[in-house]
Write a protein that binds this DNA or RNA. Structure first.
Lengths: 246, 246
DNA sequence: CCACTTGGTAAACACCGTTCACTAAACTGG
DNA sequence: CCAGTTTAGTGAACGGTGTTTACCAAGTGG
C-alpha cells in the first residue's frame, strides 16, 4: 500500500492546520498565546485531541521551532538564488543581511527559537552535530565554509591557530561541515577547510548571531533611531579581515 | 515623623521577603515557577495579598530584573575593588570576565533580564537614557569609557568616524556616559570621549554581550567541551585592536 | 464481517492571574 | 481617648491553563 489512506491524508492535513494555527498565534500574540486550547479552538477540535499529534505543548513548540528554522533556511536560499555560484563574497553578505532582515521581520519566531532550551527533534547522534543549539546558523556556516575552502584566504593572511583545547571539538565540527558542503556539490577537504578556518567561521557566526539577537531583543544600551549602520559596521569589521569584501 | 511606623517596617520586611522568595523560585525552578501562588505560599500569605505590593505579576518580575541588575553591578564592582584606579586595562578585562562568569553562574537570572521586553521601572526621561534596554552593560560601559578617555588610544590608532546617521544618537549617549564617568570622580569631556570612541565602546559591548548571551542560551552551533578559550579569543580580538592589552 | 486502530469528546484534576467585597488591625488627628 | 481612615490580608469567584482518562465512533485491514 503506497497510496495514503484517507485517514492518513486527513491526519496530515490536520497536523498542517495545527502547525499553521499555532504559528499564527505565535506571530500575532507571542509565545504565551500559543496555548493548546487556543490552537484547538482555531482548528475546531478540543485541546485533548492535540495529544493525538503531539506528546505535550513543549513537543508542539519544538516542532514549531523546526518549522521556523526551515522557513529561515528557505528564505536565505531564495535570497542566494539570484547570485551565481562564483559570487561567494556576495553570498556571505547576502546571508548575513538576510538573516538580520528575517529576524527583525519575525521577532516572535526568532525569540521562540533562541530562547528554547532544546530544539532538537528526535535523538542526537554523531551524525547530527550540526543540530546542536539551533539551525539558524546552517546556511551561513555552509556558505562561509564553501567560500573559505575555495579561496583559502585571498589576502594570504595567516590565521591564528585555534586554542589547543578546542581541537577535538573543532575537528568533529570540521567533519560535519566538510560533509555538508560536499553534499552540495563542492569538494572540500581538511586542508582547504582547516581548523583555523573553521574556528574563524565559528567566531564570525557567534558575532553575527549575537549582534542580531541583541537587536531583536532590544538589548542595545541606547535608543538607536537607525540600527542598520551599526549592523553594517559590524559586518565590515567582521568580514573584511577575513578577506571577504563586498 | 521621620521614624518609620511599625506598619512601614513590616511592609518593607514583607516586600523583601516576597522578592527573596521570588528570586529563589526563579533560580531553582525557572521563570515559569515564579507564580504568584508559589511566592505567596513561601511568604505565608495568599496570592491576592501580593497585589498590595505589586500591580501585577509582570510588575513583580520587573522589580526582580532590577534586583538582578543591581546584584550584577555589585559583583562587578567587587571584582574591581582589588585593582587600582590606574589599572584600567585590567579593569576592563576583569569586567568582561566577571560578566561572563556571573552570567554562566546565574543562567535563570540572566535569561529573565535578557528576554524581558521592558525592564525599566518608572518613567524614562532624558536623564535615563542609560536605562534603555537593560542595565547589564552599565559597569562595562563606565570602565571602558573611563579608560579610553584617560588614554585616548595609546597606540595612536585612528578610529573610524561613526556613520553619520548615528551621530545624534551617539551624542545623546555620549552625554550620558560623560555624566556617569564624571560622577565617579574622573573628568572627561567630549574631546577625550569623542563620538568615535563612544561608537567603538558600544560595538565592543554588543559583541561581548552577544557572545555571552549565545553561550548562556546554548546557541553555539557545536558542542564545546570548554568554551572559555573561545571567550578569551573573542576578548583578545575585541580589546587588543582597541589598545587594551592585558 | 470483525478485531483493532485511530481521532475526537467530555469530565475531571490541579494549577494559573486577577478582581472584589469584606474584616480586622494599625494609624491619624481632633 | 475615640472616630474615621488607611492598609494588609482573606475567601470567593471568574476565566483561563496543561494534562489525563474513559468512552464512543469512524476507519482500516485481514
Amino acid at each position: 500500500m503506497t497510496q495514503a489512506t484517507r485517514r492518513e491524508r486527513l491526519r496530515a492535513e490536520t497536523e498542517r492546520d495545527i502547525r499553521r494555527q499555532a504559528r499564527a498565534l505565535l506571530v500575532n500574540h507571542g509565545r504565551e498565546a500559543v496555548t493548546l486550547r487556543a490552537i484547538a479552538r482555531e482548528v475546531g477540535i478540543t485541546a485533548p485531541a492535540l495529544y493525538r499529534y503531539y506528546d505535550s505543548r513543549e513537543d508542539l513548540l519544538r516542532h514549531l521551532c523546526d518549522d521556523i528554522c526551515h522557513d529561515l533556511e528557505a528564505e536565505l536560499y531564495a535570497a542566494l538564488a539570484p547570485l551565481g555560484e562564483d559570487a561567494g563574497h556576495e553570498q556571505v553578505y547576502a546571508v548575513c543581511r538576510g538573516f538580520r532582515r528575517w529576524a527583525l521581520a519575525h521577532p516572535q519566531e526568532f525569540s521562540l527559537v533562541f530562547a528554547s532550551p532544546e530544539n532538537v527533534i528526535g535523538s542526537v547522534g554523531p551524525e547530527d552535530l550540526l543540530k546542536v543549539g539551533d539551525q539558524f546558523g546552517k546556511v551561513f556556516l555552509e556558505v562561509a565554509s564553501r567560500l573559505i575552502a575555495k579561496h583559502d584566504h585571498p589576502h594570504g593572511e595567516e590565521v591564528a591557530e585555534p586554542p589547543e583545547v578546542l581541537h577535538n571539538d573543532l575537528r568533529a565540527f570540521q567533519q560535519v561541515m566538510i560533509r555538508t558542503v560536499t553534499a552540495r556539490g563542492v569538494q572540500v577537504d581538511e586542508e582547504s577547510l582547516h581548523l583555523g578556518a573553521i574556528f574563524h567561521i565559528l567566531q564570525a557566526w557567534v558575532r553575527l548571531y549575537g549582534h542580531v539577537a541583541l537587536e531583536v531583543f532590544g538589548r542595545f544600551p541606547l535608543a538607536v533611531s537607525d540600527p542598520e549602520p551599526m549592523f553594517d559596521a559590524m559586518l565590515a569589521s567582521l568580514l573584511v579581515p577575513m578577506g571577504i569584501e563586498e
